[in-house]
Design a protein around this nucleic acid. Sequence first.
DNA 1: GAAGCGATCCTAGCACTGCTAGACAATCGA
DNA 2: TCGATTGTCTAGCAGTGCTAGGATCGCTTC
Lengths: 192, 192
Amino acid sequence: MSVQERKQRERAERERLIVATARELAEQQGWDAVTTRRLAERIEYSQPVLYSHFRGKREIIGAVALQGAAELATAVRTATSAADGTRARVAALARAYLDFAVRNPAVYDALFQLDGGLAYAQEDTPEPLKDAFAALLETLDEVTGEGVDPGLFTEVFWAALHGLATLTRAGRLLPEDAGPRVELLVDRLAVT
Amino acid sequence: MSVQERKQRERAERERLIVATARELAEQQGWDAVTTRRLAERIEYSQPVLYSHFRGKREIIGAVALQGAAELATAVRTATSAADGTRARVAALARAYLDFAVRNPAVYDALFQLDGGLAYAQEDTPEPLKDAFAALLETLDEVTGEGVDPGLFTEVFWAALHGLATLTRAGRLLPEDAGPRVELLVDRLAVT
DNA sequence: GAAGCGATCCTAGCACTGCTAGACAATCGA
DNA sequence: TCGATTGTCTAGCAGTGCTAGGATCGCTTC
C-alpha cells in the first residue's frame, strides 16, 4: 500500500505545483500569459498532464481562486483584529481588502473577475468563498445599522470595495485618491 | 469630387455596420463569440476589411464602448430629469445605471470590463466617456455633503454601482435583493 | 529474477483564434 | 483605351485550448 500512498503524495504535490506555477505566472505576466503550453513547460511536464489533474484551464483558475479566498479571509481578519474601535476596524477591513487586490491582482481576478467554474452565493459554494464573505460580515455586522440585514449590508459594502478595486486597477480611477475614497466610503456607509 | 464623397459615405456606413454587428453579436452570444471571422461573415466581407477600419478587435470593442457611453449618459439624464426631489433623483440615477448594465451587458463589458484601448480619467479621454461621468456628477453633486469634493464623491458612488452591477452579473450576488441594495446604498451614501 | 500488465506520460494533431502578406480585380484619371 | 491606384480577397502564420493514440515505465505476480 505504501507505493500507492507515495504515488498519491506525488500526485498531490504535482497538483500543488501546477496551481502555484499558474498563480506565479499570472502574477508575473497576467492571466493571458497563462497558456496550457507555457504552464506545462514551467512544471516540466507535457500539456496533457494538466488535464489529468484539472478538467481544463478554467478549473486551474478556480483552484487559484480558492487559495486566494482563504488568504483574503486571513488578511481581513488579521487587519480587523489589530484595530481598536468600531470605526477603525471597518477602515482597516476596507484597506486590507483593497490592499489584497492591489498586491495580488491575478488572484483577485481569479476570484471575482474570471470564470473559475465556481458556484457563488449558493449552497454548494466552496467553503473558502463562504468564509471570505463571513470574514467581512463579522466586522461589518457591528456597523450595519438598525432595521438592515447584516448580510445585505455586507453585500453592498463589498460591492463598493469591489468597484473601487476593479475600476482602479483597470485605469478607470486614478490611484492617487484611493485613500480619501476609502475614508469617504467608511464614513458614509458604516453606522458607528 | 462627388465620387470620392460617395465612397467616403459608403465607408462610414460600413464602419457603422461593423460596430453595430459586433455589438449585436456580443449581446446575443457574448464577446467571446465575436471573432473576426464571424464578424466578417455577418457583414458579408472578408476578414481583412475589418483591419482597414480598425487596428484590431480591441478598437472595435472601443467603438462599441463609446457608443454605449453616450447611451448611458442619456439614460441617466432621462431618468434623473423625470424624478422629483433630491432623494428620488439619486435613486433614479442608481436604478437607471444598473438597469443599463442589465439590459446591455455586452456594451457594459466593453465600457468597463474589457480592454477597448481607451484612455480613462485622463486628458485625452474621449468626450463620450467624460460626458457619461459628467451625467453622474450633475445629480450627485447635490448630495455630496459638506467638505467633500463632488468628483471624489461621484467616483465612490460610481464604484459602488459598478460593484453591484458586475458582481450581480457574474453570479457573485443574487439578483433578487437588487432593489433593497440600491435603496440602502442611496440612503447611506447620499446626503439629503 | 523474469514476464506480463496496468498506469502514466508524451507526440502529434484538431479546430479554432487574431492578424497580415501578396495576388487579383475593379475603378479612376489621362 | 491605357496605366495607375484603390480596394478586396485568398491563403497563410503563429498562437490558443484540448484530446486521441501509441510508447514507455514501474509495479506485481509467478
